[in-house]
Design a protein around this nucleic acid. Structure first.
Ligand SMILES: [Zn+2]
Ligand SMILES: [Zn+2]
Ligand SMILES: [Zn+2]
Ligand SMILES: [Zn+2]
Lengths: 156, 156
DNA sequence: TCTTGTCTTGTTATGTTATAACGTTCATTC
DNA sequence: GAATGAACGTTATAACATAACAAGACAAGA
């Protein structure tokens, strides 16, 4: 069943924050991972923002909340969240977004509006790429799929 | 006709350098663009390397050749080449590669070996992404498609 | 209990990537 | 021969990211 991206449309945002936190809690509990205060707060910040944030922006929020204010504090929390799929990195923006489909095992793709900066998470296409990889003997482990353009609200 | 990536296999490299330079010259002549010495040399450097290079690595080569040694020198030349499709940026690596299909109007995809660092240019798949974009009203202008994994020579 | 090891957080310091802003040169155009 | 615009170079700074070390928490095992 196709996933309907919510990035550009209004939605129950409180619900999607709660859902994201719950998914992370459940996952960590199940796997014996430590969702510590910094990590938890970092995820909350990204879920609340519901847009891509730079590591230093996240860091500023964290330090406001009494956590450390040095880059590694943010980068480490983000790395943890990223490693376990709660957060994705947007290479094109050097920024991070909370996963829009927490819990689902997926290979995300993104649409990035160059006008308003909003980012929507979508599904992986793959097809042509995997075919080309197979043909050349390349083994794909991870993919970066990011489309840049104009979101519905930013078109003339 | 499908494009056969040469990134991971041996090939007529002198030929591919010459072809890349000729394509750029022809294109610039046709469009009235200035393929100035720095720009030309920057493209040569990337074609010769035949792998992704960071802007500062390119800059080091340029300055050896008597060009400026400050970042904007490299970034500007790279931006020109990128704007006209002679060079692609690899977001995942914060690096640049010469286009493997100079002259062809294309939307590139890349395979990046995490072991040896080689990068092969391939074709765009799109499909799933364009479908998702259409559904949500997003207008795609550019895509970043980068697969990371192991090239044929680096597999166990 | 004491010790040992692992994990987490924090700090200092530094490294890497990228751009803003300004001045100069040179060719084109009026 | 002034005005315009493109390209290049410089200075300075911004933005992004990590290496390396110290200290506390806590559990496993001697
Ligand atoms: Zn996701
Ligand atoms: Zn928009
Ligand atoms: Zn080649
Ligand atoms: Zn390899």
């Amino acid at each position: 069943m196709p996933y309907k991206p919510t990035g550009f449309s209004s939605h129950d945002h409180d619900g999607c924050i709660a859902q994201g936190m719950q998914a992370a809690e459940a996952f960590c509990a199940a796997k014996g991972l430590q969702l510590t205060p910094v990590r938890r707060r970092t995820l909350e910040i990204l879920l609340q923002a519901h847009e891509a944030m730079g590591a230093y922006d996240v860091l500023a929020r964290l330090s406001q909340d009494g956590f450390g204010d040095k880059p590694p504090v943010a980068y480490r929390a983000l790395a943890f969240l990223q490693d376990h799929g709660f957060v994705h990195r947007i290479e094109r923006l050097n920024a991070f977004v909370a996963c829009a489909r927490p819990g689902a095992d997926h290979d995300p793709a993104f649409m990035i509006c160059r006008s308003c900066g909003k980012v929507a998470e979508s599904e992986l296409s793959g097809s042509g790429l995997t075919a080309s990889a197979r043909e050349s003997g390349f083994v794909i482990e991870q993919t970066v799929i990011e489309a840049e353009g104009l979101c519905p609200g930013c078109q003339p």
